[in-house]
Amino acid sequence: LAIRKNEEEVLKTIQLQSIGQIEDAVQKIHNADKIYIFGRGFSEMIAKEMTIKLQLIGKTCEVHDDPNIIRLKSRDIDKSELAIFVSLNGETAELVEACQNLSMKQVTTITLTTRIDSTLSKISDMTLVGYKGEQSFFPDYEVRSRLSLHVIARILLDAYVIRMK
């Protein structure tokens, strides 16, 4: 059951990806003077991994997971920069507020999420959506699997490295 659940999450997430959309996101990453990645809770680990990988390939990138810093930073980001949000449900208040701030300033935003109908998806310039199964082995806690977000992040960064070589 555990193996099948994870296999389903990976395969369905891959099927949801569009080559054109991945290419657009790669171009936005390439063109950005600096990249900010925002994540909260268990999504922080994906945000941190993305940041390190982007730094390793020479992109100026920083990650933020503190709600107050996310809110403040979103007011300072420049039009030549890019913001990436990692959010399982796309409703985290400080991420939504940050995306709204950036939208008003016409800063490009990319969201990695499992909910296309979320507030973050609706206000973000681009949304890369992953599959989220219905079953949770920890129903009392907000610790659902972020495997699909990992898969999207990996596809995006692999595509970036391939494209830029």
Score class of each variant (00 low, 15 high):
4 R>G: 07
7 E>L: 12
7 E>F: 13
9 E>A: 12
10 V>F: 10
18 S>N: 13
18 S>T: 14
19 I>S: 13
21 Q>R: 15
21 Q>Y: 07
21 Q>A: 12
28 K>N: 11
29 I>G: 00
31 N>Y: 12
35 I>S: 04
37 I>W: 03
37 I>M: 01
39 G>R: 00
39 G>M: 05
39 G>S: 05
41 G>I: 01
42 F>K: 07
42 F>R: 03
44 E>M: 09
44 E>Y: 10
45 M>S: 11
46 I>F: 06
51 T>K: 04
53 K>T: 14
53 K>A: 10
54 L>N: 08
56 L>W: 11
60 T>F: 11
61 C>D: 02
62 E>V: 09
65 D>L: 08
65 D>R: 02
67 P>M: 12
69 I>D: 12
71 R>I: 14
71 R>Y: 12
74 S>I: 03
75 R>V: 01
76 D>G: 05
78 D>N: 15
78 D>H: 10
78 D>S: 10
79 K>R: 13
80 S>V: 07
80 S>T: 14
85 F>A: 01
89 N>Q: 12
89 N>P: 04
90 G>M: 04
95 L>H: 03
96 V>N: 05
96 V>Q: 11
97 E>V: 06
99 C>T: 11
99 C>P: 01
100 Q>H: 08
101 N>R: 00
102 L>E: 02
104 M>C: 13
106 Q>K: 14
107 V>P: 01
109 T>Y: 00
109 T>M: 00
111 T>C: 13
111 T>Y: 00
112 L>W: 02
112 L>M: 06
112 L>N: 00
114 T>Q: 08
114 T>L: 00
116 I>W: 09
117 D>K: 05
118 S>M: 09
118 S>Y: 02
120 L>N: 10
123 I>R: 00
123 I>G: 01
124 S>I: 03
124 S>W: 02
125 D>C: 00
125 D>L: 00
127 T>D: 02
128 L>F: 07
129 V>F: 09
131 Y>N: 08
135 Q>H: 15
137 F>R: 13
138 F>M: 13
139 P>V: 04
142 E>P: 15
143 V>Y: 10
144 R>F: 06
144 R>Q: 11
144 R>T: 05
145 S>L: 04
147 L>Y: 03
147 L>R: 03
148 S>R: 05
150 H>P: 00
152 I>K: 05
157 L>S: 09
158 D>L: 11
159 A>D: 03
160 Y>E: 04
160 Y>S: 07
160 Y>R: 02
162 I>T: 10
